[in-house]
Nucleic acid binder design. Structure first.
Lengths: 110, 110
DNA sequence: AAAATTAATCGTAATATTGCAATATAATTA
DNA sequence: TAATTATATTGCAATATTACGATTAATTTT
């Protein structure tokens, strides 16, 4: 209990859920938003931009990195993060397919 | 701590995150998948379809209902669930806008 | 080399989530 | 009305997540 049973779902279902789970926190949405906006790299202004402590931001960045939605390169004493567009687009497509299923607004059933 | 600070994010960021969070569990993805597939209503076969206990399914359905992604109507002793297409599409659009930001595959920065 | 800067990691407290057994509720059928 | 059927709710145990202070690690500047 407390642990999600991934074994009983399809690969695809697990992937969609895993992607969504990472997006499922406003801090991570805000980080991604910010990285999209200032198309060029940013480093540690995220701590100022968003109002969370540095270790908390670092933790969120780690999760985004684990899901390969962002990548970071060391630049002196700073780290420069940006969207991993290739992977983002791939995950994005997966999600869009899932979301798009609702579009045919046929007969509501109940 | 342990509590997500919604106050420091924009309305939109919170809405995107909240939607994603609900999608962020494979059981709920599987439930939605199933509801999309059998376009017509379904009732309690979800317990058989997915391999979780009845109370667990019921709990996931509740969360989907809270987010207004599905709606259920009582039919005798059963409850008939289906996608709330209007709301689904509205949330879906919100998410698609967010996801779409990555599409312009411009210069990777780092 | 010492001090400063920046980000990651560790440890921990508070809270949330997941899953299920047991039970309750509500409608139907016998 | 009693038994049955289907779903919801309650209570709880296990685990996960979120947030932050303290510390560490790595680089740069003085």
């Amino acid at each position: 209990m407390g642990v999600t049973r991934t074994d009983i779902y399809s690969e695809k279902e697990n992937r969609i859920a895993a992607f969504a789970k990472v997006i499922g926190h406003p801090a991570r949405v805000a980080i991604l938003q910010h990285l999209f906006k200032i198309n060029t790299c940013i480093c540690g202004d995220l701590v100022d931009e968003i109002g969370l402590a540095q270790p908390t931001i670092s933790q969120h960045l780690k999760e985004l990195k684990n899901m390969r939605l962002i990548k970071g390169t060391i630049e002196g004493t700073r780290v420069c993060y940006c969207i991993d567009k290739e992977n983002w687009n791939s995950m994005s497509r997966l999600m869009q397919d899932f979301l798009g299923q609702g579009l045919q607004d046929g007969e509501e059933c109940c």
